[in-house]
């Protein structure tokens, strides 16, 4: 656990980092960034809290098994989305321009960027975001857990 100043700063910054991370994930198909970048930003938030509060406190809030599960679920969602398009070809974008979820047609010319477009890409971004936030956070958690063992 670090000093009160660090913890207050972490408390203040944490929600903003998470929101920015989820923003990057959700807007992956229209703005720069995407699942990997957003997931990394979210994991940075986790790392911030973890460094500020220390492993003993944080392990009550965040479970390693949940993060591992997030990793697995993200990967599975990604590959299953790819498999669904198999009747045409692997990774086929079956949702684009279909009118279903994320299936709106993009108007021609300059436009403000509609979120509800691009077919399977946002789904894959979400899957990658979940996977990366789980994977990178679990690395941080294991680092801290191992460090504690060394101390003892």
């Amino acid at each position: 656990m670090m000093s009160k100043i660090v913890r207050t700063q972490a408390n203040f910054l944490y929600p903003f980092i998470l929101i920015f991370g989820f923003y990057v994930v959700a807007h992956g198909h229209i703005t720069p960034g995407g699942g990997f970048q957003g997931g990394a930003v979210i994991a940075t938030g986790v790392a911030l809290v973890a460094v500020a509060y220390g492993y003993d406190t944080i392990k009550k809030w965040i479970k390693k098994t949940h993060l591992t599960a997030a990793e697995g679920i993200g990967l599975l969602c990604f590959i299953i989305t790819a498999f669904i398009g198999l009747s045409t070809s692997f990774f086929y974008n079956f949702l684009a321009n279909s009118g279903l979820i994320f299936g709106n047609r993009v108007p021609y010319g300059i436009n403000p960027g509609y979120l509800n477009t691009a077919g399977t890409l946002p789904i894959m971004n979400l899957a990658v975001g979940i996977e990366v936030l789980g994977g990178l956070s679990v690395i941080i958690m294991y680092m801290m857990a191992y460090g504690r063992e060394v101390k003892q």
Binding site: G85, T88, S89, F90, F91, Y92, N93
Partner: peptide
């Protein structure tokens, strides 16, 4: 040849 995400493949 196989092209990912193309129609036809």
């Amino acid at each position: 040849v196989y092209v990912f995400g193309a129609n036809p493949h």
